[in-house]
Nucleic acid binder design. Structure first.
Length: 466
RNA sequence: GGCGCGGUAGCCAAGUGGUAAGGCCAAGGUCUGCAAAACCUUUAUUCGUCGGUUCAAUUCCGACCCGCGCCUCCA
């Protein structure tokens, strides 16, 4: 079965085929750097990461652009309040964001692009839209006139035919002719930063940046455009209106949206006290891999209810995976190749791949991995697991980890060197041999205090860092 | 009200027109000097409710109930 994705545009699962050979041109909506990103944001960004990794695993070459919105109302408000320049203000949060991405092992896209570095291009695009008659100005600001774009609503499946132009719905501080119209260019207000451009002084509206930067780097028609479901309307709808008006071409072929993360069944909000940044969660002692696993383990089209209980569960699941990896690496297997197991591994890998091909069904893919691990453990216990099975198993596990990337621990507290640990283990072995279990247990506890866990096996002692 | 997503065991969650994957937790057990790890057993006669289609529905159709999101900024 080919790779396929649910496309918001068609509301169907479709086979994925990029326009050109094996290159995937993908644009994903990145963060607005006005504050620390929260775990809801990272749910979406983790999904982008899985998408990237699976596309590449499937042989595609990626050209992925992600924007950083560094000019926007909240940023301006906060920067003014702190008497900082826009750049000084956003630099802090951009840096924090990139650190968080790294902690979560999110691969960087091929290009990060900042809104403020494309102001002139945005102005030029707006100019062109104006020449084409898609805009009007009001009090120094320029608006996109939705009435000039008949396909408006196709992505969000909204029917606007019943809405009258000019039927004023309460609109913020700007004057719009139609509630659906949106600002392309905002006139400067007192004390606010602005840019001098051929279309006048001001700053870009939010939507135009994505259209302009996507087209600039990826061409007029993207293969994939992804974002959170909350962006479907109006953001992505507006992007389509602008882009298609500008180019006359479809803007993106596959629109992929990830569902919301909820906390305790509700939307995160500061007033409810259920608003968590990644930093908040890590400060509670959870490893970034546990967070990554949790965010990655629920299919993107399903709302993910974040709880600390769930995070704990994710942590234990990661431990199970790591234990298996450790066993695979340390245990001595008899020579040979158990054909039954070889087949079993191939089956598991096939199920893993087919599941991810199916609109990135991570739940099913993980099931394939865990089922395999159980069978392999059983075989190991029975002595049926042989050397050559090990190589294949390691390859499968590596493949799993190229996508999920949770096996490597990120907190490496090297309080004891490997040699120190081995020495302690040797001392404990002596004590055990003398049946001095009190001393043996003392050593084991001592090591445990330092984050070293011992496991006695028939092949000797196996140890790992917590 | 419109648009969209979802309601499957204590929690998370997959899935199919033919009788319920997987993970976590819990209980008991095997192994172990004791642990750890691993394994085994138990845990949904049942998949929001009510109808319908069918030999057969959790899976299709209809209605209804509930949760969440979007409809002004938002991953």
């Amino acid at each position: 079965m080919p790779l396929r994705f649910y496309n918001t545009l068609s509301q169907q699962v479709e086979e994925f085929r990029p326009q050109e050979d094996n290159i995937v041109r993908m644009y994903t909506c990145g963060p607005t750097v006005y504050d620390y990103a929260h775990i809801g944001n990272f749910r979406t960004f983790t999904f982008f990461d899985l998408l990237r990794r699976w596309l590449r695993e499937r042989g595609y070459r990626l050209d992925h652009v992600m924007n950083i919105t560094d000019v926007e109302d909240k940023i301006i408000r906060n920067a003014l309040a702190q008497h900082k320049s826009l750049t000084d203000y956003t630099a802090t949060f951009e840096k924090a964001f990139l650190e968080d991405c790294k902690a979560l092992r999110l691969e960087p896209p091929e290009r990060w692009v900042r809104a403020t570095e494309h102001i002139n291009e945005m102005a030029a695009a707006i100019q062109k839209l104006s020449e084409q008659g898609h805009t009007y100005s009001s009090e120094g600001s320029l608006y996109f006139r939705i009435a000039t774009f008949p396909d408006y609503g196709k992505l969000s499946h909204n029917d606007f035919s019943g809405i009258r132009a000019g039927a004023r719905v309460d609109v913020d501080t700007y004057d719009k002719a139609d509630a659906r119209d949106f600002a392309l260019w905002k006139a400067p207000k007192d004390g606010e930063p602005f840019w001098d451009t051929p279309i006048g002084p001001g700053r870009p509206g939010w939507h135009i940046e994505c259209s302009v930067m996507a087209i600039r780097y990826l061409g007029e028609t993207l293969d994939i455009h992804a974002g959170g479901v909350d962006l479907i309307f109006p953001h992505h709808e507006n992007e389509i209106a602008q882009s298609v008006s500008l180019t006359g071409k479809p803007f993106a072929r596959y629109w992929i949206h990830s569902e919301f993360l909820l906390v305790d069944g509700q939307k995160m909000s500061k007033s409810l006290g259920n608003y968590y940044t990644l930093r908040d969660v890590l400060a509670r002692g959870f490893a970034p891999e546990a967070v990554r696993y949790l965010l990655a383990s629920v299919p993107h089209r399903k709302q993910l209810n974040f709880t600390f209980e769930g995070l704990k569960s994710a942590e234990t699941s990661v431990d199970r995976l790591r234990n298996f990896k450790l066993r695979l690496e340390k245990e001595k297997f008899p020579p040979g190749n158990n054909p039954k197991l070889a087949i079993r591994t191939a089956e598991a890998e096939t199920k893993f791949s087919e599941s991810l091909d199916d609109d990135l069904n991570v739940a099913e893919a993980l099931a394939a991995v865990f089922e395999y691990i159980r069978d392999a453990n059983v075989a190991m216990d029975a002595g049926d697991f042989q050397e050559e099975n090990g190589a294949v198993a390691r390859a499968f596990l590596n493949r799993f980890d190229r996508i999920f990337d949770v096996l490597r621990p990120s907190t490496q507290r090297e309080s004891l060197s490997d040699a120190d640990v081995e020495a302690k283990i040797a001392a404990r072995a002596q004590a055990k041999k003398a049946r001095n279990f009190a001393e043996a247990d003392r050593v084991r506890d001592e090591l445990l205090q330092q984050g070293i866990i011992l496991e006695d096996t028939k092949d000797g002692v196996r140890w790992k860092r917590k």
